[in-house]
């Protein structure tokens, strides 16, 4: 029979409802909020600023430092132990690597750009939401960037290739599941994040990636609209 109908009634290539807003944290140099379905992420950017300890400085280019963190109440009732752990460190690292291809770090030798990502609520796809929020926050902070980055998970549930898995789909038990978070740089079509949990055949992986490429422009549009809204010249003034 297979997975003929998604649990939340979406079409196979349909994203969860997305909400984005720029400039939500006034004290930061740049910030953004990004929500996809029940997963929401705040990102705050501080810097470029001087990097200490000094031995970490790189005289040829700046350093992008990301920090991913789930809030204690962000799970499904069970308290999430706050602070860095193995998983958070890994996601911080892949977030840095997903964003690095677009950020012009050569402009800031010896400096650091700090990106803090906090997740008040998660329902799968949190690293993707974090990357989307972080890329908006970097643009809001006036950091030179070649492009925005958007991320989404694609994958396979039972026999269907689909996008943006939620927690129920990740935990689907009647068939094989593959969850593949990807991040895409639209102007070059470069994939800057590719991870996988589960199993999938080579052909199906290629299909899933193609599907990802077709839906990511929708996310980019929402990110751009939110950024432009913050800086739009208001007519009533």
């Amino acid at each position: 029979m297979g997975y003929s109908q998604r649990l939340d009634g979406r079409k196979l290539d349909e994203l969860r409802p997305i909400e984005a807003k720029a400039g939500v944290i006034k004290n930061a140099d740049g910030s953004a909020f990004f929500r996809i379905g029940k997963t929401s992420a705040y990102a705050a950017v501080y810097g470029p600023r001087e990097l200490y300890p000094k031995f970490m400085q790189d005289p040829s280019k700046g350093i992008l430092r990301c920090n991913y963190s789930m809030m204690p109440f962000s799970g499904i009732g069970e308290r999430v132990r706050p602070g860095p752990n193995r998983r958070a460190r890994e996601i911080s690292l892949v977030t840095e690597k997903a964003l690095a291809p677009v950020v012009e770090l050569g402009e800031f030798p010896n400096a650091v750009i700090d990106v803090f990502i906090e997740l008040p609520q998660t329902d799968a796809g949190s690293r993707c939401a974090g990357i989307c929020a972080a890329s908006m926050a970097l643009a809001d902070a006036g950091i030179p960037m070649k492009d925005l980055v958007a991320a989404v998970s694609v994958g396979k549930v039972h026999d269907k290739i689909l996008v943006d898995l939620d927690y129920n789909e990740e935990a689907y038990e009647d068939g094989p599941v593959a969850d593949i978070p990807i991040a895409l740089v639209p102007s070059t079509q470069e994939i800057s994040l590719l991870q996988m949990d589960g199993e999938i055949s080579k052909e199906e992986l290629m299909q899933a990636l193609e599907l990802g490429r077709t839906v990511i422009p929708q996310i980019i549009e929402i990110q751009k609209k939110a950024l432009k809204e913050k800086y739009a010249i208001k007519d009533d003034q």
């Binding site: 677009v102 643009a139 960037m145 070649k146 492009d147 925005l148 751009k224 432009k228 739009a232």
Partner: peptide, 9 residues
């Protein structure tokens, strides 16, 4: 002229 643009536009 005077449009707001974001990286990648």
């Amino acid at each position: 002229e005077k449009d707001v643009v974001v990286p990648g536009d």
